[in-house]
């Protein structure tokens, strides 16, 4: 686009609202790919992205899985980090001071090993005024307790969401796993249990073998597959969930560039999360935001809401 044209064209309104939180644009990192934010300050302006989503937090610090924890696969990567995190106390003490300085909503991703722990972490988040919302992880495929155990059974999902909803005095986003026969069943269950928004999808369980050693390429045997390889599956599932629930949906899965994010917005995601792309290019989210804006300008759309859910079928 020429410089002259840029000047006359009005910048489109990119802001969206998710569960009562105002975002300057719909692009945020996926939990676990952005550390606690500060890791990426050398590369991007935190006040350009829609929100910051933290690494999954638990009541006590968690060491994570044995190594190797990651392996690259065709157009994707497997990971089995095992929810390694500093724990809620250290998060408040060491990570919040930075996050407080940033004028961008902070979403705390969290999980528990037991139902009770989920409830406890939710309560602790109430003590941190600068946390805009909680993102409940019931979808990690790489730990024995917590995570996916709650996310694959609609009854268990409903139970944990209801408890957290009761304990958390902030908007509640629930992050779903794709490792189910029908994601709409779980989506409906968590909506009914009180979720204010749904984020999907987490990684797909996968496995890869080193044929020379005949060992699994990650120590946990299986891991979560992410990256461009999973995008069509993610777009399909986000589409299904959007058609099923009335709460806002955040689309996640293999978004590397603006065109990928647009697919999710068109099927009806109100916002998107960028994961693996942050590893490949720490400035990826900025390029995605600029690319979406440019697309809106070229299409003559002045409010992003006119694009969201505009799928023709």
């Amino acid at each position: 686009m020429s410089e002259l044209k840029k000047e006359i064209v009005k910048r489109p309104d990119m802001s969206v609202e998710i569960a009562g939180i105002q975002l300057r644009n719909p692009v945020m990192p996926a939990s676990g790919t952005f550390g606690y934010g500060e890791e990426y300050t050398p590369f991007i302006d935190m006040e350009k992205i829609g929100a910051i989503v933290t690494k999954g937090l638990s009541l006590k610090p968690k060491a994570g899985n044995p190594t190797p924890r990651i392996a690259e696969t065709v157009s994707g990567m497997l990971n089995a980090i095992g929810l390694q995190n500093v724990g809620i106390d250290a998060f408040i003490q060491h990570k919040m001071p930075f996050l407080r300085t940033v004028n961008t909503p902070v979403i705390a991703n969290f999980f528990g090993n037991t139902l009770e722990e989920y409830g406890e972490v939710a309560k602790r988040l109430n003590d941190i005024p600068e946390i805009a919302a909680g993102e409940l992880n019931i979808s990690c495929p790489n730990v024995k307790q917590g995570g996916i155990v709650f996310g694959t059974d609609p009854k268990a999902a409903s139970e944990v969401v209801a408890l957290v909803r009761k304990n958390l005095q902030k908007p509640l986003i629930v992050k779903l796993t794709p490792n189910v026969t029908d994601i709409t069943v779980v989506a409906r269950a968590v909506e009914e249990a009180g979720a204010d928004a749904i984020a999907c999808i987490n990684t797909l369980t996968g496995m890869s073998v080193d044929v020379n050693t005949r060992k699994p390429r990650i120590a946990n045997m299986t891991g979560g597959l992410s990256g461009p390889a999973i995008r069509p599956v993610a777009v399909r599932m986000v589409h299904q969930v959007v058609q099923t629930v009335s709460v806002p949906v955040i689309g996640i899965g293999g978004i590397m560039k603006a065109m990928d994010a647009l697919e999710f917005l068109i099927v009806g995601a109100k916002a998107v999360q960028v994961g693996t792309a942050n590893f490949v290019d720490p400035t990826a989210m900025i390029s995605i935001i600029e690319g979406i804006e440019e697309f809106l300008v070229e299409e003559g759309i002045d409010d992003i809401h006119d694009l969201i859910g505009s799928l023709k079928f």
């Binding site: 790919t33 952005f34 890791e39 990567m77």
Partner: peptide, 17 residues
């Protein structure tokens, strides 16, 4: 030498004991 995804301390894939 460890395999890693991000190189900046975010992915936690390159940890050693």
């Amino acid at each position: 030498e460890e395999s890693m995804a991000c190189g900046v301390g975010a992915c936690l894939g390159c940890v050693v004991k």
